[in-house]
Nucleic acid binder design. Structure first.
Lengths: 137, 137
DNA sequence: AGCATCTATGTCGTATCCCGACATAGTGGC
DNA sequence: GCCACTATGTCGGGATACGACATAGATGCT
């Protein structure tokens, strides 16, 4: 395999791509913090709502872990903090006693709506830059 | 401002976008770990090499902090760990006694070359998915 | 030249969040 | 009824970023 044909321009492109991703993450983090959420909490709420069409009753803790690419015990702690903050509710799954379905509260839904609108706008603004970077890959 | 026109499909799109970013981050993290680097260390090396055309002598600690969007003291600690691992060298800036220029070692350059080739390939594979997501924004 | 101010780097204690290992309870096949 | 598997939960430890503070050099003004 030839890993030798990496030029300074390639390094610059990769660095620029990473910078764009970090800036988006930084925007998202600031937006979340502005409404009192940690980035992970925001992403968890989004994952739950993002799966609403296929899982209207909420997601299991393990499904949240898989959506966020974290270990299940990390998801447990994350859901603990979300529940303490009144942002989600745990409900036992009537069809499987092991699972507890995690659903967002009205309060969280309001926060998420505002955050999502801001993120859509930010992503639209970011789009030309990402397209330009993807173009030179 | 109308933040009301967010649909379930929008949530799903945003969630899918975040998932794609997380999966790329997970790939990158695994690739870095496979050669003994933390994700941050990899990103720092890439930032230094990515700026090689404009700063051939290396980057200052503060410039690394700005490239990585972290505080300068976090960058100090990161460079400490990189130097301990023999991946970068600190050299005093001859034209400014306050600055210390951070340059990658040959060893780090070899690691970064392999990592960058793998990342270019991964990004090319990821491109159609990102383009599809950007298309529905 | 002297002094105030700003910039760059570095130090230290703290906080957050994830993880591995382990534990408990429910499910489903046989 | 038993056993393997799955889902959730608990606990201690570790990595890394941050805020506050400290030091040294640069810069500009008089």
């Amino acid at each position: 395999m030839q890993t030798e044909d990496i030029t300074d321009a390639d390094y610059a492109t990769l660095a620029a791509f990473r910078l764009a991703l970090r800036q988006f993450a930084a925007f998202s983090e600031a937006a979340a913090k502005a409404v009192g959420l940690t980035p992970r909490q925001h992403q968890a709420l989004l994952a739950i709502k993002g799966a609403a069409r296929t899982s209207p009753g909420g997601l299991g803790v393990g499904e949240i872990a898989r959506a966020l690419l974290i270990r299940h015990n990390s998801a447990v702690e994350l859901v603990d903090r979300l529940a303490d903050a009144g942002l989600v509710r745990r409900q036992p799954d009537p069809s499987d006693g092991r699972r507890s379905l995690v659903a967002v509260t009205d309060q969280a839904e309001r926060l998420l709506r505002g955050l999502s609108a801001a993120h859509m706008q930010e992503l639209r603004a970011l789009r030309p830059r990402l397209l330009a970077l993807l173009d030179v890959l």
